Structure formats: C-alpha cells, structure tokens
Simulated assay, not measured.
Amino acid sequence: MVQMDSPVLLQYLDILLKHGNYTKAAKDLYVSQPYLTQTIKKVEKELGIDIINRKTNPLQLTEAGRIYYQYLNSLETQQEQFL
C-alpha cells in the first residue's frame, strides 16, 4: 500500500484539484513542483493506476482517482471518529 501519510496525500490532491495544475498547487503547498509531480506519480505507480487525468486542463481525477480520493476521505473520517 502507499507509504505516504494519507492526510498529507489528501491535502495534496485537494490543492491540486483546486488549482488544476501542479505549479500553482506546489506553490500553495510550499513544495517544489517536481516534488509534487513525483509524489503523485509514485502513488500512481504503487497503486498501479492513474489517479490524475493529465489530458484535461484543468487537471482532474480519473474514475479510479475519484474512488481513491473517496477512500482517503473515509480514512480521515474514521480516524477522526476513533480519536
């Protein structure tokens, strides 16, 4: 499974979807654009699916990406309920 902290990844995806491109999202997240791009690609490689549709402008989630995004949201909700 993906080794990145799910709340951080969820934040990255939220900001990426908000801005629709890696450059603006990276600036908002205070990380470099190459780091953000590589992080998302690493997650996609570990999952074996594309979660970002790079053919659209602005960037959007793929169908699999939407399912994964919902999964990350449910993890965060469960963690909050547990605490």
Rank of each mutant, 00 (worst) to 15 (best):
L83W: 10
E44G: 14
L83Y: 12
D5K: 14
R54Q: 11
V8P: 00
L72Y: 06
T37P: 00
L16R: 02
K24T: 03
Q38I: 02
E63M: 07
N73P: 00
S6A: 10
M4F: 14
T77M: 12
I51S: 06
Q33V: 00
Q81I: 15
I49E: 12
L10A: 07
V8H: 07
D50L: 11
L13F: 04
R66W: 00
F82V: 04
I67T: 13
V2D: 07
Q70W: 04
L16G: 06
A64S: 14
R54S: 12
I51Y: 06
A64W: 00
T62Y: 08
V31C: 13
A64C: 00
Q33P: 09
D14M: 03
L17Y: 05
T39I: 12
I67M: 05
L59K: 06
Y69G: 03
Y71E: 08
M4H: 11
L10Y: 07
P7Q: 04
S74L: 11
I51T: 06
A64R: 05
G48V: 06
T23M: 07
L61F: 07
L61R: 03
T39Y: 00
Q60N: 02
L9G: 11
D14I: 05
Y35F: 15
S32Q: 08
L59H: 06
N21F: 04
P7D: 01
P7E: 02
Y68P: 09
I49N: 03
L72P: 09
K27N: 12
